[in-house]
């Protein structure tokens, strides 16, 4: 689903954001990207979402290759990859339902279909009763639910979440994490950037990629499977993944929803948000 081959991203002014990163994420996998602020978590998410391109190396998301995908193809990729922000990015003048409908309208869904789908999506995130509330009237947790519903509007195969609980209190954080987990159990691949190590520790069986100063310092999958290597004459058309292995966590996984500990230190406030 996602393959990174020696990917580096160097910003002209601030220097290297990530260096020589390689990993492979499978369909339906739940992955934590961990590390301190500035470690490169957001850069990885932006690279996956094609908001930025690698300076070196190559990456593939679904069937889109970083070196070959044209700008006009990127919207098609983004419809298959939902994005959840720490700071929500909701349109303040619109209601919860209108914010979700906005995503459907943008992607060309008919008005009648939009109404039906909005109802279904808000149900999915347990926010039907707030459908007509303006986004400015919603709590932070509710806002994040709307963002998730909006991200799900285009039927994505993958959800990217950049510190999604960063602005939430412990209770709301737990609700939102459980929502992500439920989506994962239904088959959705999730890549979540967080520096909440306690949450990562308490969530069993997930893939954890730990970053430090732009480098991948550990990958929980490495102990059980080798990382694909480009140097072995591989090509992106036929990634060198062998042998096929059992997914670390799949839709059939019956793991119970892990709880987000209430004594977990809160994730970063907006002012502390990483800019990588």
């Amino acid at each position: 689903m996602i393959q990174f081959y020696n990917v580096s991203k160097i910003h002209p002014r601030t220097g290297s954001a990530v260096a020589e990163i390689s990993f492979h994420l499978r369909k339906g996998e739940f992955t934590f990207l961990t590390g301190h602020s500035g470690a490169g978590k957001s850069t990885i998410l932006k690279l996956i979402h094609f908001q930025t391109r690698p300076t070196k190396g190559e990456l593939q998301v679904l069937r889109y290759h970083s070196s070959r995908t044209k700008r006009r193809q990127i919207p098609n990729l983004r419809r298959r990859v939902g994005f959840v922000f720490q700071d929500f990015k909701l349109l303040a003048g619109l209601t919860a339902a209108e914010n979700v409908a906005f995503a459907l309208k943008v992607t060309g869904v008919s008005r009648r279909e939009t109404d039906r789908k909005v109802e279904q999506l808000l149900n999915q995130v347990s926010l039907s009763e707030k459908a007509k509330s303006l986004s400015s009237e919603l709590s932070a947790g509710e806002k994040q639910r709307v963002v998730i519903a909006r991200a799900l509007a285009t039927n994505p195969l993958l959800l990217l979440a950049d510190e999604p609980m960063g602005n939430l209190d412990a209770e709301a954080s737990e609700e939102i994490f459980q929502l992500f987990w439920r989506l994962h159990l239904e088959g959705m691949a999730v890549v979540m950037a967080t520096h909440n190590t306690e949450l990562v520790r308490r969530t069993p069986g997930v893939r954890v990629l730990e970053l430090k100063n732009g480098q991948l310092i550990s990958d929980s999958a490495v102990e059980t499977e080798p990382l694909p290597s480009v140097s072995e004459g591989s090509s992106l058309e036929s990634p060198p993944i062998s042998p096929p292995q059992k997914p670390i966590l799949s839709a059939s996984n019956k793991n119970p929803v892990p709880e987000v500990s209430t004594d977990v230190p809160h994730e970063s406030a907006p002012s502390q948000r990483e800019n990588t």
């Binding site: 919207p75 098609n76 906005f102 943008v106 992607t107 285009t154």
Partner: peptide
């Protein structure tokens, strides 16, 4: 937001 959602 439109771009992130996937608007052309």
């Amino acid at each position: 937001i439109m771009q992130i959602i996937g608007a052309k």
